[in-house]
């Protein structure tokens, strides 16, 4: 295997802007200190692939409202706890007496709901294709075990439509590091139409530092060519995981979804099918999104139009201690990762 590091450091060809769509990639790039290993002509930008970051405030507000309702317990992954809503975060709601429990796996929800039939448990179901498959498995178990007091508040999203949105509305992206976990479910062939439509390469990568460097190298080399390359064959297959997709289709159907900073994108979300509406905690119509402070540039950061450090709030008004938007809260958020790994400063 050739050492791609000297090439990436000394590259002086035409400038390249590459987008990593997946939040886990954003975190891995920071953790490995990759940004500083690249020539100034290679720019990495973070895309809208952190599920917490693209969640609109109406969704948080609804969770807060549910948590404060007697007889209802909201279950969530930790990342969502500190995300500011229109009025307060779930953390604030919990301190104000709201019923919010942090769980590590959606499957914990089953045990909690089963052991406490008097209360209704609402799982904050955010995520992309990967997590949607887990929610489908959860619903399968809830059905077979006849657990009636478990519901989902869904804000589920799918990846290709938002990548299309970025290419169409934002432009200026010369290649994508395609998400590793999502591709396990979807397979890597779903990027081929996008590659052809926009004449750019997609490289599917895992999360090791070396593999990310290889992906960046491949994207620079493939610049301007509509190719899809899979550097993560140990986990990602051409056709993905059909069984998981079948489970997702059984419970969910495509819908328009609201993305923080991007508005509503047709066909970019998943909602519970009508026949399973008994599992729905009121997920429809949660489209409203507000800025938490004037001048907040979350929208531009999430779509890769600007780097986190270009936002005037970054590192000053907006820090992990005083987050103004979800991207500074989530461990996979671009602003959080830029801040903690010093990518914003030289």
């Amino acid at each position: 295997m050739t050492d791609v590091r000297p090439f990436l450091k000394n590259y002086d060809g035409p400038p390249v802007r590459l987008m990593e769509v997946c939040g886990t990639h954003t975190a891995a790039i920071s953790k490995n200190g990759i940004a500083r290993m690249l020539s100034p002509a290679i720019r990495l930008i973070s895309g809208p692939g952190c599920p917490v970051c693209v969640t609109v405030t109406a969704y948080i507000d609804r969770l807060v409202e549910l948590s404060l309702r007697p007889g209802t317990v909201v279950l969530t992954f930790g990342d969502l706890m500190r995300v500011p809503g229109g009025r307060m975060s779930l953390n604030d709601a919990k301190a104000a007496g709201g019923n919010v429990r942090m769980v590590y796996s959606p499957m914990d929800a089953l045990r909690l709901a089963e052991s406490d039939p008097k209360n209704t448990y609402v799982f904050a179901a955010v995520g992309f294709e990967t997590t949607s498959a887990v929610y489908a498995a959860l619903l399968e178990d809830a059905e077979s075990e006849r657990i009636g007091n478990l519901k989902l508040l869904t804000s589920l999203k799918i990846m290709p439509p938002v990548i299309d949105w970025v290419c169409r509305n934002q432009g200026g992206v010369d290649g994508f590091i395609a998400p590793g976990h999502v591709s396990v479910i979807t397979g890597c062939k779903i990027y081929q139409p996008l590659a052809e439509r926009y004449g750019i390469p997609f490289v599917v990568a895992g999360f090791e530092g070396g593999q990310l460097l290889d992906a960046i190298y491949a994207l620079v080399k493939l610049r301007g060519r509509p190719r899809v390359m899979n550097l993560y064959p140990s986990a990602v297959r051409e056709n993905g995981n059909e069984e998981a997709r079948r489970a997702i289709r059984r419970y969910f159907e495509p819908c328009a979804a609201a993305w923080r900073g991007m508005g509503t994108i047709p066909g970019s979300g998943l909602m519970l099918r009508k026949e399973y509406s008994r599992f729905d905690a009121g997920s429809a119509g949660l489209d409203e999104d507000c800025n938490f402070s004037p001048g907040c540039l979350c929208a531009k950061v999430l779509t890769g139009a600007i780097s986190p450090a270009d936002c005037p709030r970054f590192g000053r008004l907006c820090t992990p201690q005083t987050p103004q938007g979800a991207c500074m809260v989530s461990q996979e958020g671009s602003c959080y990762n830029y801040y903690i790994s010093g990518r914003g400063s030289k």
Binding site: R5, S30, K31, N32, G33, I34, A35, R36, M37, G209, G210, L213, P320, Y339, I340, S341, G342, R343, S345
Partner: peptide
């Protein structure tokens, strides 16, 4: 980092 990168630890 093991691959030769540098990052700030907060």
């Amino acid at each position: 980092t093991p691959i030769g990168g540098t990052r700030v630890v907060g």
